[in-house]
């Protein structure tokens, strides 16, 4: 197939090219989609704290990335895109919904100063890092150790763990986010 069903939609044209291997078209597609997603997250995620909106935008971008081959070029792009965004916003609400979110500023005079924000930098202590990484699945933990702690070359790591470079990046991104939430939970 060389042209999408709806050639009027520039996003459809870009994603079609992207799925055929055009990385630049793909970057333009994601850049164009990000503001659309921000709008959706603002509109649908009212119950979510605004400082997490950009995290959710990134989660939707990752979902689009991992499922981009499920768009059928014979059907319009927007319903597909909005369905993924809706699914991920609901997912985000479900996962974050249970946790009560209070703005930290209100407590700044009662709480002691934090030692640091970065979940790994703040905990140089080896045992503490091992404990945090132990909460991840072993594969993600190894990716974090190799890339973030030992700073090995991504190419070597992806060869050693038999993961594609893309899969490696996505795994690292997710693992770091989960570590950040573990860190927050520990402090609260």
């Amino acid at each position: 197939m060389t042209s999408p069903e709806d050639p009027e939609d520039p996003l459809a044209v870009q994603l079609l090219a992207a799925n055929a291997g055009d990385g630049q078209a793909y970057a333009r597609f994601l850049q164009a989609v990000a503001p659309v997603l921000r709008g959706i997250v603002r509109a649908r995620g009212r119950s979510l704290p605004p400082d997490q909106h950009e995290d959710i935008v990134q989660e939707i971008l990752l979902a689009i990335h991992l499922k981009r081959q499920t768009w059928d070029p014979a059907s319009p792009l927007r319903p597909w895109l909005y369905a993924i965004a809706r699914y991920k916003v609901i997912d985000a609400c479900r996962r974050r919904g249970i946790r009560v979110h209070l703005p930290i500023e209100d407590y700044s005079d009662v709480l002691p100063a934090e030692e640091g924000a970065d979940p790994l930098a703040a905990r140089d202590d080896r045992r503490e890092v091992d404990r945090l990484l132990g909460q991840l699945d072993p594969r993600s933990a190894e990716v974090v150790r190799a890339l973030a702690l030992r700073e090995e070359a991504p190419g070597d790591v992806s060869a050693r763990l038999a993961m594609s470079p893309g899969n490696l990046r996505v795994t690292l991104h997710r693992a770091m986010k989960r570590l950040a939430t573990f860190g927050q939970e520990d402090k609260s």
């Binding site: 992207a18 799925n19 470079p165 893309g166 990046r169």
Partner: peptide, 21 residues
């Protein structure tokens, strides 16, 4: 460059996925 831009740049380097059939 925001972290979202970085994420997009990293994602765009990935090879295209096999077609969904």
């Amino acid at each position: 460059m925001t972290s979202t831009d970085e994420l997009i740049a990293r994602l765009a380097e990935d090879p295209p996925p096999p077609a969904f059939s």
